[in-house]
């Protein structure tokens, strides 16, 4: 094969690779046409690639708040297999009052099932945002906060992950395509056993993708910084001092210094780098905890065992 023939083929394959990784349907049409012209793929293969790329685009658009809700429920249920829920009515009630008071100020105050918060029985300093608004915070994370404003900063950060649908982005695109597009083309009747099994398998795999990101791989550095920046805006709108975000990150950095490679430290960029990046964007980083908020925070925390 001479160079004259090789270049269009390499180019076409390159475009196709870009298409498959970007999931952009418009580029797919162009890329598959180029590859087909170069004789790399057949017409039917080109059509199949186009169909898949369009399906990926459509699947992302079609994931509705209700579907997100069911994914989030299963994600939370799977997280509970490793991090058991903590039956502490006083702390859970306080977390929900604080969290829901913040969530109404987010850019996405309404989700299918609403925002709900729960304490997890773990010393690990960590927090998880399941799609749709189920937010789970470990005892270690709550214990890392010394006042309500810092806890508000933690919850605001997790609310912003939900708002930006970061958990859903962790699902491998192919799964959504298969699960949603194939099913959507079926009639609206009750699913048969075979369809239900296939859909359930895709569902479990999708949930696995999200939980893997939440507990092991972590979000991308960019997603974490986006959530931090949005959390500062959210705190500001809700009336909390934005400087609480900085003190919370600094304290977390100190606590995590002895636990590098574990929990939150494993799944988040260093707290210090996050604090440094945020400082430049704050209009006012001064922060004095309010006495009335400090009082109710202390009352709520009294019932929480610190170590096990």
């Amino acid at each position: 094969m001479n160079a004259k023939h090789v270049y269009p083929i390499v180019g076409s394959v390159g475009v196709l690779a870009a298409v498959l990784f970007s999931g952009c349907a418009e580029v797919a049409d162009l890329g598959s046409q180029l590859a087909q012209d170069a004789g790399v793929i057949s017409a039917s293969q080109a059509e199949s690639i186009n169909r898949s790329a369009h399906a990926i685009d459509k699947a992302q658009e079609q994931l509705t708040p209700e579907q997100e809700y069911y994914i989030g429920r299963a994600v939370a249920a799977k997280v509970f297999q490793t991090y058991p829920p903590m039956d502490q009515p006083q702390v859970n009630s306080y977390l929900n009052l604080l969290g829901q008071s913040l969530a109404i100020f987010s850019n996405r105050p309404e989700t299918y099932g609403g925002y709900h918060f729960l304490l997890l029985d773990s010393d690990e300093i960590n927090a998880f945002a399941a799609p749709g608004g189920l937010i789970l915070v470990t005892r270690g994370m709550v214990g890392c906060c010394t006042n309500e404003d810092e806890l508000a900063a933690v919850l605001a950060h997790e609310i912003c992950h939900v708002e930006m649908k970061h958990g859903l982005h962790a699902i491998k695109q192919g799964r959504l395509t298969e699960a949603l597009m194939v099913v959507a083309e079926e009639s609206a009747r009750q699913l048969g056993n075979e369809e239900l099994q296939s859909l359930t398998d895709d569902f479990v795999d999708s949930v696995g993708d999200v939980v893997m990101t939440l507990t092991t791989k972590g979000y991308s550095r960019m997603q974490e910084h986006d959530a931090d920046a949005a959390a500062v805006q959210l705190l500001r709108r809700a009336g909390y001092p934005e400087g609480a975000m900085i003190t919370m990150l600094q304290r977390m950095d100190q606590r995590l210094a002895s636990a590098r490679g574990l929990g939150f430290a494993k799944t988040h960029p260093s707290a210090k780098s996050r604090a440094d990046l945020l400082k430049a964007t704050l209009t006012d980083s001064r922060f004095i905890p309010d006495a009335s908020r400090q009082e109710r925070f202390s009352v709520a925390m009294r019932s929480m065992p610190t170590n096990r």
């Binding site: 079609q62 209700e66 069911y70 699960a179 009750q190 239900l196 859909l199």
Partner: peptide, 15 residues
């Protein structure tokens, strides 16, 4: 899709 087809209570019930 908006009517809840796909990942829904039927799938959760099976799980």
């Amino acid at each position: 899709a908006l009517a809840g087809k796909g990942f829904n209570e039927q799938v959760e019930a099976k799980l």
